[in-house]
Amino acid sequence: MSTVTELGYVGIEASDLAAWERFGVDLLGMQVGSRSNEALTLRMDDAVHRWIVVEGDADDLAFTGFGCATQSDLDAIAARLRAAGNTVTEGDAQLCAARQVQRIVVTSDPLGNRVELYVGLAVADTPFASGRLVSDFVTGAGGAGHQVLIERGMDRQVLLDWYGLLGFKVTDVIDQELAPGIVASVTFLHCNGRHHTVALANMPFPKRMHHFMVEATEISDVGLAYDRCMDAKQPFEMTLGMHPNDRMFSFYVRTPSGFNVEFGWGGLVIDESSWQVQHLDRLSSWGHRPPNLVADLLQA
């Protein structure tokens, strides 16, 4: 069956492009791809962009781009979506030029999140060069990273069925009881060897996306980025910790638009042919504590 192969880029509508440039370049170690009064693109590797930040008031997820290996794969996925009753629109030359892809079609998931399916994301004219990283970002066959979408009360099976049309499969499920009668539930989906590319979360959060994860190839870059964010007084969502399912060592920092970036290292690469779905009862093996709790403990 034809499937998407990667999460190639993510689009954000942001009210402060200058803050996003500082956040992405100075704190996380990305590189500016292009810059104008209306948009900013950020690079993580030799692709022309991985983040597309457009000026606007929403301060939230604007679109997600999933790559397809061939034109026939894109046609097959678009046909499945249409057969299931979804509106799928062929992108014009202007949109292809804006996203710097050979071809693109546009649809929406059941939550109303704009999804762009493309072939042929362009390679930049110059090699990626970070002014902050001592290593590189993990991209390649695993794509740009992963995103965690907020379900907002929707029936999860509806979402699983829809993302299944793109070729996503369940990796595992975590249900953690945070307090009596209050459960945070997340289902993790993969489309390549990266443990998960999309996750669906049933938890209170005001944005469409809880976080987007970026991964470094060396553990020291996690600590260095952690220190840069702390020194810059960038708000944290969670301190250093590790997840039990993808084994990512990471922290969560708040973006200028109010959702989070998880900056990590050591994420699990799975064998899709033999992977067995797991059910776990905790979101973190250790750490990932709220920063105010850590501050209180340290002060005490």
Rank of each mutant, 00 (worst) to 15 (best):
Q100K: 08
V101I: 04
Q102D: 14
V106T: 15
S108W: 04
D109F: 09
P110R: 11
L111A: 09
L111F: 03
G112H: 14
R114W: 06
R114H: 03
V115W: 01
V119T: 11
G120V: 09
V123C: 01
V123T: 10
T126K: 11
P127C: 08
P127D: 12
P127G: 12
F128I: 01
A129Y: 06
S130Y: 03
S130D: 08
S130V: 05
S130K: 00
G131D: 08
G131K: 05
R132A: 15
L133V: 01
V134R: 13
V134W: 04
S135T: 05
T139Q: 02
T139P: 04
A141T: 06
A144G: 06
H146I: 06
V148G: 03
I150K: 06
I150A: 09
G153M: 11
G153D: 05
Q157I: 00
V158N: 02
L159M: 14
W162E: 04
G164W: 04
G164D: 05
G164E: 04
L166S: 04
G167C: 09
F168L: 13
F168P: 07
K169V: 15
K169D: 15
T171H: 08
I174D: 04
Q176L: 03
Q176T: 07
E177T: 10
P180W: 01
G181V: 10
S185N: 08
V186F: 15
N192S: 09
A199H: 11
M203K: 08
M203N: 12
P206H: 12
H210R: 07
F212G: 14
M213N: 13
M213D: 04
V214I: 13
V214Q: 06
I219M: 14
D221G: 13
G223H: 15
L224V: 02
A225Y: 05
A225W: 01
Y226S: 00
